[in-house]
Each structure stands twice: as structure tokens, then as C-alpha cells.
Design a protein around this nucleic acid. Sequence first.
DNA 1: AATCGCGCCAACCGCAGAAAC
DNA 2: TGTTTCTGCGGTTGGCGCGAT
Length: 248
Amino acid sequence: MVRTPSYDENGKKKGTWTPEEDRKLAAYVTKYGCWNWRQLPKYAGLARCGKSCRLRWMNYLRPNIKRGNYTKEEDDIILKLHAQLGNRWSIIAGHLPGRSDNEIKNHWHTSLKKRANHYAPNSSDSESKSINQDSSTRRKSVENQNAISPNNCMRSYETVLESSHMSAKQSSSEELSSYTTDYQVFQEEAILMENSGSFWTEPFLVDSSFSSRTDYVVPSIDCELVCPPSPFIGHEFLSSFDLDDYNW
DNA sequence: AATCGCGCCAACCGCAGAAAC
DNA sequence: TGTTTCTGCGGTTGGCGCGAT
């Protein structure tokens, strides 16, 4: 289940994440947001590639992530959407707040696939493939519809909402209303956090209304000498991320 | 008790597309 | 306009856990 830790040719660590690495990543992203995944590990004090950090955050560390124990409703949604969309895991994940595309993909392959075959014994792999063959085309059109820049992922809580909010745009009106409710809940939580002096008010984070990566302030290399956003986050702050009690 | 095989899932890899230069 | 950089997606793999033999 876990991969043996190793190092690639660039000295970047691969394999299982340690609690300490999780703490560093969670602490950094929570405080500064994901302004640049490629640069982030350097500032967060991690010997990982940006891709690995992003994956770890999206699938495991981000707030409100749900793990295991799929409800019947969730299974039904996945089955239904998979029948419509094929292996469009990110879109399907957008309809299940708190679930990552990776986790849904795993859940599909480990349990739902059998159920799907059971419910639709005539459906073949070839059919599935035909659905997926034009997935890239569909992916493009869906992304255009949503018009969400990948670089808009500036804040952890925005990231959490991105998928569900995005999907709401392409959902039926009933679904839209439910996701709107989710969004309202999120906004209320955001206000609470803001009032309590959270990372919303931290440096390098700006108002949610911006849409271009050039609009926000990031810690430049030059800036590092003056105001390094890590790579060594204070021990006190780091220690507040005790992953044993890490209930987002 | 040993070992074999399978299920599960975290994490890696390669690719495509968008944005920046 | 072409090239480079970065991000996100989907497919695949590594390896632990556990039941069956």
C-alpha cells in the first residue's frame, strides 16, 4: 500500500509521505496557499517535486476531505455519472464534495466496476472505451464551459470548493441549488475563519475576485532575502499541525 | 506455520492543454 | 508565432494486509 521511500536523479524524494512532510505541506499551503506547486516544496522545506506535493494535498491533506466508507448515495452518483461520462474522474469527483478523483477512481476499480457490470451485463469494455475515446474532446469543452484557470487554485479552501462549485455550473438546476447551498456554507465558514484571523489575512494571499496569475503577489526569489515565506516555517506554527489530530 | 494470491489504495508516470514568455 | 513552463488528468504500478489453502 505504501511505496518504499527513494530519491530520483534530482535528489527529490519519492514514495510514502511521512507525518513530518505532511505537517510541513499542510502548514505551508494553509498559511500561504498553493501559489506555485513547482516552487512550493522549496519554500515549504520539502525535498519533493511539486507534482507530488499537489497530489498529496489534493488527495489527502486538503480540508474537508472524506476518506473511505462510501454511502449508497455516493455509489449511485458515481455509477450514474460514470455511465454518462466514462472515466472522467475529476468531473465525477466534482459531484461528490470531499472526494478526490484519485479516490473515486480507486473505489471504482475496486468495487463499483463489478457492480456496474452486474447492473449492465451487456456493457462491454469496448463501449467503455468508446466513451473514453472522445474524453479529451469532452474534457476540453467542459473546461471551456467552466472557464476556471488552473492557476486560480490560490487558497486551500478555494481548492476544496473548486470542484463542487465548478461541477454545479454544468449540473441540473436541482443539483445547482444543492451545490449553491454548499457554497453558502463554505462562505459562512470562510467568514468565520476570516474573523478569527486565519490565513485569509496572511501575506501572499489576495482577494478571491482576481482571475489572472499575474494579479496576485507571490514570494519572489528576490523577496526571499527580505521576507522568506519559509522554507523553514516556525516550529510553533508547524507543531500546530499534529496530524494525529488532523481532522479538517 | 508458511506461502500464495488477491484486494486495496497511495503514489508515480506520461501526456495534453493553458498560460507565460 | 513558436517555445517553454506549469498544472491537472487519467492510467498504471508498488507493496502491504489479509484470507485461503
